[in-house]
């Protein structure tokens, strides 16, 4: 992919982000932060590539360490978001 195609995806995603985030209800802003935290750990992809690669030992260990950090975030972020969202309940109608 050339740079311009990647840039196009990025710019369009910024627009999508802008509209999607404004439509998030303010009551869920804390879960929003927790879940954005979890998904930004998709950087684990880069960590996995580094950890799986041969050729440079240092790079491999840096990659493995990054896998640990990103995994804390992925599992922790999604779990804490799920825990919060489970608490939001509607009024019981009688």
């Amino acid at each position: 992919m050339d740079f311009i195609s990647i840039l196009s995806i990025f710019v369009l995603a910024c627009f999508v982000g802008y509209y999607v985030v404004w439509s998030v209800t303010p009551a869920l802003h804390t879960p929003l932060m927790a879940v954005t935290n979890a998904i930004s750990s998709v950087i684990v992809v880069g960590a996995l590539i580094a950890a799986a690669a041969m050729g440079a030992v240092t790079a491999k260990w840096l990659g493995l360490l990054a896998v640990v950090l990103a995994s804390v975030n992925i599992f922790g972020g999604f779990a804490v978001t799920a825990r919060m969202l489970a608490m939001y309940k509607k009024k019981e109608r009688r």
Binding site: M33, A34, I43, A50, G55, T58, A59, K60, G63
Partner: peptide
């Protein structure tokens, strides 16, 4: 929760630094 989120942010930041460093040290793999 605010502390936890701040701590999680720091992990993403560090992971980004580590991945960038790994990419610098082993660019062929990337």
């Amino acid at each position: 929760m605010p502390q936890l989120v701040a701590a999680f942010h720091s992990l993403v930041g560090m992971a980004a630094v580590l991945v960038a460093a790994a990419a610098y040290l082993n660019p062929d793999a990337f």
